[in-house]
Design a protein around this nucleic acid. Sequence first.
DNA 1: CATCTGGATGGAAACCATTTTCATTTAGGA
DNA 2: TCCTAAATGAAAATGGTTTCCATCCAGATG
Lengths: 142, 142
Amino acid sequence: MPHDFPSMLKELHLKVTPRRLATLAALATATTYVSPEEVHKRLQGEFARIGLPTVYRNLEELAAGGVITKVLHPNRQLYYYFCPNRSHHHHFVCLACRTVEDLECCGLEEVEKQVGGRVLSHIVQANGLCQACLQAGREAAA
Amino acid sequence: MPHDFPSMLKELHLKVTPRRLATLAALATATTYVSPEEVHKRLQGEFARIGLPTVYRNLEELAAGGVITKVLHPNRQLYYYFCPNRSHHHHFVCLACRTVEDLECCGLEEVEKQVGGRVLSHIVQANGLCQACLQAGREAAA
DNA sequence: CATCTGGATGGAAACCATTTTCATTTAGGA
DNA sequence: TCCTAAATGAAAATGGTTTCCATCCAGATG
C-alpha cells in the first residue's frame, strides 16, 4: 500500500497543498537523505514557481510532526529523510552514499531516570561508511 | 592536582600560547557549556587584543584533539565544555542552566558490527532539564 | 642569547545556509 | 460562492562561522 500523504498532512493539521505533497513524494522516493536545496531543485521540475523558504518551512514542519527525519550532518547542515519505520529507533547514515540504516534502539530510555530531570530531546546518530561504500573504497563527502 | 594545560597542548602538537592557556582556563573553570562568543568576551578581560576567529580556531582544535567537548545545541549552535572525564561516555545537557552531566555509555559500540561498515563519528546527546531546573520551574532557553 | 621559521593571531571581509518580512495566493470550511 | 487563516514567493536580512592576508610570536637551532 502506497503512502497516504494527504492523511499524514491532515493529522498534523497542515493544509494539503501541491507543494507539500510533492515534497513528501520527493522524499519518499529518494533512496538517500537530501538537502533542502536538493528538494527545491527537484520541485522546480514540477512547479513554475517554488520558493526556497517554502521548502525549508515545509521540511521543518514535517520533521516537527515526525513524518520525516532530520539528519544532522557533521558539516552541521540539515538533511531530511523519509523513514517509514514508525517505531522509536535511531539511524546510521553513510557519509559517502548518503543511505540511512535503522539502528536498534539503545538504552537512552533510562537516561531520564539516571538524570532525575526531564529529557526534552536527544540525538543518537552514527555517521560513517556503510558496508558497500567501505568495500568500494568510497570516502566521506560533505 | 590542577590541570596541566601546557602538556595538553603539546600532546596535540599545538604551541603553548597565552590565548590557548586562557581559553582552557576559561573552560575548565566554567560550570556550564559556553559559546565561542562567551569565551571571546571573557578573554577580552585578559587581552587587549583578542580576535573572535582565534577563539573559534582554538576551540575547534581543542575539540578535535579531544581536550574539550562540543555540545550541539538544538538551535544548531556550537558550545564547548571542558569534561575532565577521559573515558568514553556521553552527555546530558540542561537547556536551562547549561550544566552537563555524564551519561553511562550506551550500546553504540555494537553499531559498527550491526552495520558492517565503519563508524567515523557519532552523536549521543540528551537535551533537557536537569533535576534542579525541573524543580525550580526553569525552562529551556536558546 | 640571537636568529630563523612555521604556526598563531587580528581585523576586515566574505560566506552561505537559514530565516524574516510582507504582499499575494489558496485551501477548505461556512 | 465567500471568507479567513494558512501557505507561498521574492527579496532582504540574519548571524554564526570561516576565509584572507599581513603581522606577530613560540620555540627550535646554533
